[in-house]
Simulated assay, not measured.
Amino acid sequence: MIGQGLTLMVVGMAVVFILLVLLVYVMKLLSFVVNRFFPDKEEEVQPKTQRAGEADILAAIASAAAYHNS
């Protein structure tokens, strides 16, 4: 009885392990196929400009630091 339980456990764990390994390889194959036939389109990089709100935030931080240090 214990032997049959252990055999069933080993067979079940082996099946799960094989399915997980198969899943990893299928996902790698799918990733390769998608990247090969549907590549990402490269977008033009825009230079970053300072937003109007950033100057206000920097001024608030500077004034808080000056107040704290005085």
Rank of each mutant, 00 (worst) to 15 (best):
M1D: 04
I2L: 09
I2Q: 05
I2P: 00
G3S: 11
G3M: 06
G3I: 10
G3V: 07
Q4P: 00
G5L: 15
L6T: 09
L6S: 08
L6V: 11
L8D: 05
L8C: 02
M9C: 06
V10G: 01
V11S: 14
V11D: 11
G12T: 14
A14T: 15
A14Y: 08
A14G: 14
V15T: 08
V15L: 11
V15M: 04
V15G: 02
V16H: 04
V16N: 05
V16Q: 06
I18F: 09
I18G: 03
L20C: 07
L20K: 15
V21Q: 13
L22A: 09
L22M: 05
V24N: 03
V24R: 08
V24E: 03
Y25T: 06
V26Y: 03
V26M: 02
M27A: 15
M27T: 12
M27Y: 13
K28I: 14
K28S: 10
L29I: 07
V33A: 13
N35G: 08
N35C: 02
N35P: 00
R36W: 11
R36N: 07
R36D: 03
F38L: 10
P39S: 00
P39I: 01
P39D: 01
P39F: 01
P39E: 01
K41V: 13
K41E: 14
E42T: 10
E44D: 11
E44N: 07
V45D: 03
V45H: 01
V45W: 01
V45E: 11
Q46R: 07
Q46G: 00
P47V: 07
P47W: 06
P47K: 02
P47I: 05
K48L: 14
T49D: 12
T49F: 13
Q50N: 08
Q50E: 15
Q50F: 07
R51H: 08
A52F: 10
G53F: 11
E54K: 02
E54I: 03
A55M: 03
D56C: 01
D56E: 15
D56I: 14
D56F: 13
I57W: 05
I57S: 02
I57Q: 07
I57Y: 13
I57P: 00
L58V: 15
L58I: 15
L58F: 14
L58D: 15
L58N: 15
A59Q: 13
A60R: 15
I61Y: 03
I61T: 06
I61W: 02
A62T: 07
A62Y: 01
A62F: 02
A62N: 05
S63F: 06
A65V: 14
A65H: 05
A66T: 14
A66G: 01
Y67F: 13
Y67M: 12
Y67T: 14
Y67G: 05
H68G: 02
H68E: 09
H68I: 05
H68T: 08
S70A: 12
